[in-house]
């Protein structure tokens, strides 16, 4: 347990520079974005008012005011979120391969640590999970600040509605997925997310254990896991089964999710303890 915590700490430290850079990019892009967008919205409004000789009221009647949602759909806001997601997905692979590739072979050291090797697997998964949660928390902290800034930059009359955080989350498809407004939805999204991380880790270990053949095993494993997880959908499209209640459907997905995660961990443990090559 102690080594597991040390390993998690170690894995976090190894990525911390890139991670902080991601956070800073997000912060800068979103705050600069707020300023740029708010200003350009106001400039546009004034321009239109000037051209068409509209009063403030007439403009607002014809065109409507602005909300934070106008900003939340721009690249300034969505771009860094997408960047973070892509970076973390990529890092799910790199967190393993960086130990094997390059001039140094740190995998030797890690695999020879006097600790159960599954700790390595869990520490890497935990690091990824903590990175995700950290990003979400960070976004949740800066979101109301951005909102306040946005509202202060838009002239009072032009602010259509003042939005709170939960309405902002609901207004944007991407935000709705990465930060579901309901806690149960949150658990479902990230439960599925972590299941996928475990499936991916195990397939990476297939590759690290059996190399070329392992790539095939790994890909087959991912396909099998996805098909198994989605199998209720195929069955449900068959009319005889469409009588299930939504709670029952949820239970089925839950059980399948737990099953696939458990299988990934068991297989992953076998691979990293007995089969993996350096």
């Amino acid at each position: 347990m102690k080594s597991y915590i040390k390993l998690v700490n170690f894995e976090i430290n190894r990525f911390i520079k890139i991670y902080l850079t991601l956070l800073i990019i997000t912060l800068l892009s979103q705050f600069i974005g707020v300023i740029v967008i708010a200003k350009s919205k106001m400039d546009q409004a004034h321009e239109v008012m000037g051209e068409q000789n509209l009063s403030e009221q007439a403009y607002l009647h014809d065109y409507g005011g602005f909300t934070f949602a106008h900003f939340a759909s721009t690249l300034w806001f969505v771009g860094p979120i997408a960047l973070c997601i892509i970076a973390l997905l990529f890092y799910c692979l790199m967190i393993w391969y960086r130990d094997w590739f390059g001039k140094n072979t740190f995998a030797y050291r890690l695999l020879m640590l006097p600790t159960a090797r599954i700790s390595l697997y869990f520490s890497k998964a935990s690091a990824i999970l903590l990175f995700i949660i950290g990003l979400l928390a960070f976004q949740l902290i800066i979101l109301p600040l951005e909102n306040t800034l946005f509202e202060s930059l838009i002239q009072d009359n032009f602010l259509q509605t003042s939005m709170d955080v939960s309405s902002i989350l609901q207004s944007n498809v991407m935000l709705g997925i990465i930060l579901p407004p309901y806690f149960s939805d949150f658990l479902i999204s990230y439960g599925i997310g972590m299941m996928f991380v475990f499936v991916l880790f195990t397939s990476i270990l297939f590759e690290r254990s059996f190399r070329l053949k392992g790539i095939v095993f790994g890909i087959l494993y991912i396909i099998a896991a996805v098909l198994l997880y989605l199998s209720p959908l195929f069955i449900l499209s068959n009319e005889t089964y469409s009588v299930l209640y939504s709670e029952e459907i949820f239970a089925i997905f839950l059980v399948l999710g737990i099953l696939i995660t458990a299988a990934s961990i068991v297989i992953g443990n076998w691979l990293i303890s007995k089969r993996v090559l350096v």
């Binding site: 001039k103 140094n104 020879m112």
Partner: peptide
Amino acid sequence: KNTYEKVAFIPDAITMLPQMTIKQAMQF
């Protein structure tokens, strides 16, 4: 896992992270 405190393997390769100092490697 316990035998890794008993046998050390010294491969013909670097087994520490290149960005570490020797001190950090020893700390690890």
